[in-house]
Simulated assay, not measured.
Amino acid sequence: MKTKILVATLLAGLTSYSFAASNVTLYGQIDLGVVASKAKHKAATFEEKSGFVGMSRWGIKGSEDLGNGYSVGFTLEEGITADDGAVAAGSGAFTRESLLRVAGPFGQIAFGRMGALGFAQSTAILRGWAFGTSWGASAWDGSSSYGLHFGRLNNAVNYVTPSFGGLTIHAMYSNSIATDDSLNKWSNNDHYYGIGTKYTAHNVDASVIFEVRDNKHVITAVAPKQKAMYHVTVGGTFDFNVIKPGFIYQFATQDELYDQHAFGLSATAPLAGGSLKVGGKYIFRKYDGAYMTAHQAQNDKKANVWTLGVGYEYPLSKRTNLWSYAGYADGAKAWRDTSDVKFNGYQIGLGMLHKF
Rank of each mutant, 00 (worst) to 15 (best):
G142I: 00
S144C: 03
D83G: 07
G132Y: 09
L265C: 03
N321K: 14
K318Q: 11
D180C: 04
A326R: 09
K318L: 06
P224A: 03
G280H: 07
K49I: 10
G166I: 03
L6T: 09
Y258D: 01
Q296S: 10
G349A: 13
D205N: 14
S98M: 07
F131A: 01
L167E: 08
R127L: 06
A294F: 04
P315C: 04
A137L: 13
S71D: 14
I60A: 05
M55V: 14
A124T: 01
L32D: 08
Q226T: 14
S63Y: 11
V204E: 03
A36Y: 11
S339W: 06
S266W: 01
S143F: 05
G33M: 09
V212R: 14
Q254H: 02
A139G: 07
G62T: 01
G90Y: 01
G311S: 01
G351D: 06
D141S: 12
G92M: 05
N189T: 00
S71G: 14
A120S: 13
D255H: 12
V242A: 14
K244G: 05
T81E: 11
V53T: 14
D181I: 00
K42E: 12
G351L: 08
M292Y: 04
D141A: 11
W135V: 01
Y17Q: 15
Y312T: 00
G115S: 12
A223L: 14
I243Q: 13
W58Y: 11
F240L: 15
V212Q: 15
E64Q: 13
A267C: 04
G128E: 05
Y159F: 03
M352L: 14
G196H: 03
A156Y: 02
T161A: 08
L353I: 15
S98I: 04
G51Q: 05
S16P: 03
A88F: 07
Q250I: 07
T75V: 11
M114A: 05
P270Q: 04
F94A: 12
K2C: 09
N203I: 05
R96P: 06
K42C: 08
V234P: 12
L316D: 08
G33I: 05
K355R: 15
N241E: 13
H295S: 06
N68P: 03
T307A: 05
S144L: 08
K40L: 11
A21T: 14
G62M: 04
P315L: 06
G54P: 11
Y249Q: 08
Y258Q: 01
T95C: 00
G331R: 03
V242Q: 14
Q121N: 14
V34E: 07
K38C: 09
K244H: 07
Y193H: 11
A21R: 15
F238D: 08
S138L: 10
K198R: 12
T15R: 11
G289W: 01
Y230D: 05
W135C: 05
Y312K: 00
A294Q: 06
A36E: 12
T338W: 10
T133A: 10
A8N: 13
